[in-house]
């Protein structure tokens, strides 16, 4: 009796007009290659929601990096250009300079942005290129399966720091956001995360603001997103999100680092 009623109720409710949670039209309907629980898929979704809500799907060009998100173009339904490892900000510069009225973003991991690509990232920021760089910081090289990243924190175990990162010999974790924030060409720098629902909402808001700043041609915008990497951290998704909260965020505190003096 109860079940029959439930079926009727479900049929009644599941209608397009009642949908409150859905895949944005700007996100392609395919299975993602990302590991279960990985933050990339969440960031892809909220960023594509922003693109949909702002109505800029036909006016935005993305640059995918080398790393786990090399296939970002398989999911984001916008024109995309895949860059050599580390060169995303240079490729984005080339695009933005010839199409100054389009929105241009790069989507890069920590190794791509802040190790092999430090030069390109830093100079694009310093030139004040009107681009958005989405910086996924999970403190590890994901695609090559767990080597030390420029952002690996002290003592953290990776396959190339198997006894923990020894900062005396391997160098210190790099805070790229803080590094570029003082540059006059840089308009907006914020560090966010997607390990809880409130944080997902804040990150989405930050991505939206960054694109607004780009529209106003205020300069380089960096949205760093501290994420988890369950597979390479050898943790389950819940444990990995706890590691983000209890360990990574102690070293990479969340919040705005630089905000332009305009309201959007």
């Amino acid at each position: 009796m109860a079940h029959e009623n439930l079926d009727v109720i479900v049929e009644d409710i599941v209608k397009p007009e009642n949908l409150v949670y859905r895949r944005p039209s700007t996100l392609i309907d395919v299975d993602m290659h990302y590991c279960p629980g990985c933050g990339h898929s969440t960031v892809h979704k909220i960023f594509m929601e922003v693109v949909e809500e702002m109505g800029i799907q036909h006016d935005i060009i993305g640059v995918a990096p080398v790393g786990c998100s090399v296939f970002a173009y398989s999911y984001m339904d916008v024109d995309m250009h895949q860059a050599p490892h580390g060169r995303a900000c240079a490729v984005a510069t080339g695009i933005k300079r010839v199409l100054p009225d389009k929105y241009v973003f790069t989507y890069q991991g920590d190794g791509d942005l802040a190790a092999i690509g430090t030069n390109e990232s830093l100079h694009a920021a310093n030139r004040g290129e009107n681009i958005l760089t989405i910086f996924i910081n999970n403190a590890v090289y994901g695609m090559t399966s767990g080597q030390m990243a420029p952002t690996t924190i002290e003592g953290m175990i990776t396959t190339t720091s198997p006894y923990g990162r020894d900062v005396k010999s391997m160098g210190y974790p790099l805070k790229f956001a803080e590094l570029i924030a003082p540059l006059p060409g840089v308009a907006y720098v914020t560090r966010q995360s997607v390990h809880t629902v409130p944080n997902v909402r804040k990150t989405k808001k930050a991505l939206q603001r960054a694109l607004e700043y780009q529209r106003l041609k205020l300069g380089f915008c960096l949205v760093e997103i501290v994420t988890n990497c369950p597979s390479n951290w050898k943790m389950n998704p819940v444990e990995s999100n706890k590691f983000v909260q209890n360990t990574l965020l102690q070293f990479y505190p969340l919040g705005d680092i630089k905000v332009p003096e305009v309201r959007v």
């Binding site: 250009h81 050599p84 300079r97």
Partner: peptide, 14 residues
């Protein structure tokens, strides 16, 4: 030059 050729890569892609 690495920056330059990748800027070319981006602009040529457009």
């Amino acid at each position: 030059e690495i920056g330059a050729i990748n800027m070319i890569y981006g602009a040529a892609g457009c």
